[in-house]
Computed example of a mutant assay.
Amino acid sequence: MKPYKIPESVLVVIYTAALDVLLIERADRAGYWQSVTGSKDAVDEPLLETATRELFEETGIVADGERIVLRDWGLANIYEIYPVWRHRYAPGVTQNTEHVFSVEVPRDTPIMLSAREHLQYVWLPWLEAADRCFSPSNAEAVLQLPQQLKKRG
């Protein structure tokens, strides 16, 4: 039996200098578009390590810390886990804490999806991407992208 998922995860918004955002379609729920997401593998796994691992597993993008740099927004969302996915968590667990990261990549970055997890990907202007996200916290993160970039600059 698979161990229960840890109810602490990362959301990684992938974008280009032109503010196009990469969205990926879930294999287990066609029509559900999202940014990279994933749970910690261990309670003590550092969030940056979780984000780096999930980014690579789901897109093939390597955050090397030099050319491709993950940025922790210092933002955490607590949300109700959709009932359809609660069986993945320990009995009684109904909420997840999601930590938001972003990463800027060149538009021509090769994307290699995990076929087990995702069907296809699309680059969309940030407002269109926010509209396509099925998760409210993911949509909100995409909408916050321009303000987050101003904070950085």
Results as ranks from 00 to 15, higher is better:
residue 1 M to H: 14
residue 1 M to E: 10
residue 1 M to Y: 09
residue 2 K to N: 12
residue 2 K to F: 05
residue 3 P to K: 13
residue 4 Y to L: 08
residue 4 Y to C: 10
residue 5 K to H: 13
residue 5 K to E: 08
residue 5 K to W: 02
residue 7 P to D: 10
residue 8 E to H: 06
residue 9 S to G: 15
residue 9 S to Q: 13
residue 10 V to H: 01
residue 11 L to C: 07
residue 13 V to I: 15
residue 14 I to R: 03
residue 14 I to C: 02
residue 15 Y to Q: 07
residue 17 A to W: 02
residue 18 A to I: 05
residue 18 A to W: 02
residue 19 L to F: 11
residue 19 L to I: 11
residue 21 V to P: 00
residue 22 L to K: 06
residue 24 I to Y: 00
residue 24 I to L: 03
residue 24 I to K: 00
residue 26 R to I: 07
residue 27 A to F: 04
residue 27 A to K: 11
residue 28 D to L: 14
residue 28 D to G: 11
residue 28 D to V: 15
residue 28 D to M: 04
residue 31 G to C: 11
residue 31 G to L: 11
residue 32 Y to M: 01
residue 33 W to M: 11
residue 35 S to E: 12
residue 36 V to H: 02
residue 36 V to F: 00
residue 37 T to V: 15
residue 39 S to F: 02
residue 39 S to K: 01
residue 41 D to F: 02
residue 42 A to V: 06
residue 42 A to R: 15
residue 47 L to Q: 05
residue 47 L to V: 13
residue 51 A to Q: 05
residue 51 A to M: 10
residue 51 A to C: 10
residue 55 L to I: 14
residue 55 L to D: 02
residue 56 F to Y: 07
residue 59 T to A: 00
residue 61 I to V: 12
residue 63 A to N: 09
residue 63 A to I: 10
residue 63 A to Q: 07
residue 69 V to M: 03
residue 72 D to H: 12
residue 72 D to L: 02
residue 74 G to P: 04
residue 75 L to N: 09
residue 75 L to A: 06
residue 76 A to Q: 15
residue 76 A to G: 04
residue 78 I to Y: 06
residue 79 Y to F: 00
residue 82 Y to Q: 12
residue 83 P to K: 08
residue 83 P to T: 13
residue 83 P to D: 06
residue 83 P to M: 06
residue 84 V to C: 00
residue 86 R to K: 13
residue 86 R to G: 07
residue 86 R to E: 08
residue 87 H to S: 15
residue 87 H to K: 04
residue 89 Y to D: 11
residue 90 A to N: 12
residue 90 A to S: 08
residue 90 A to C: 05
residue 90 A to R: 10
residue 91 P to E: 01
residue 92 G to D: 03
residue 95 Q to Y: 13
residue 97 T to P: 03
residue 97 T to R: 07
residue 98 E to T: 15
residue 100 V to Y: 00
residue 100 V to L: 04
residue 101 F to H: 01
residue 101 F to C: 02
residue 102 S to G: 12
residue 103 V to F: 01
residue 103 V to Y: 00
residue 106 P to A: 01
residue 107 R to Q: 00
residue 107 R to S: 02
residue 108 D to M: 08
residue 111 I to R: 07
residue 112 M to W: 11
residue 112 M to L: 11
residue 113 L to H: 12
residue 114 S to H: 15
residue 114 S to D: 15
residue 114 S to L: 13
residue 115 A to L: 11
residue 115 A to P: 14
residue 115 A to G: 01
residue 116 R to E: 12
residue 118 H to S: 14
residue 118 H to N: 14
residue 119 L to W: 08
residue 120 Q to P: 12
residue 127 L to W: 07
residue 127 L to T: 15
residue 127 L to N: 13
residue 127 L to R: 10
residue 128 E to I: 13
residue 130 A to Y: 00
residue 130 A to S: 09
residue 132 R to T: 10
residue 132 R to N: 03
residue 133 C to P: 04
residue 134 F to Q: 08
residue 135 S to E: 09
residue 135 S to G: 09
residue 136 P to L: 11
residue 137 S to P: 12
residue 138 N to F: 07
residue 139 A to Q: 03
residue 140 E to V: 14
residue 141 A to P: 06
residue 141 A to G: 07
residue 142 V to P: 05
residue 142 V to M: 05
residue 144 Q to M: 02
residue 144 Q to L: 07
residue 144 Q to I: 01
residue 144 Q to P: 00
residue 146 P to S: 04
residue 147 Q to W: 06
residue 148 Q to E: 07
residue 148 Q to A: 03
residue 149 L to C: 01
residue 150 K to R: 14
residue 150 K to Y: 13
residue 152 R to P: 06
residue 153 G to H: 10
residue 153 G to T: 13
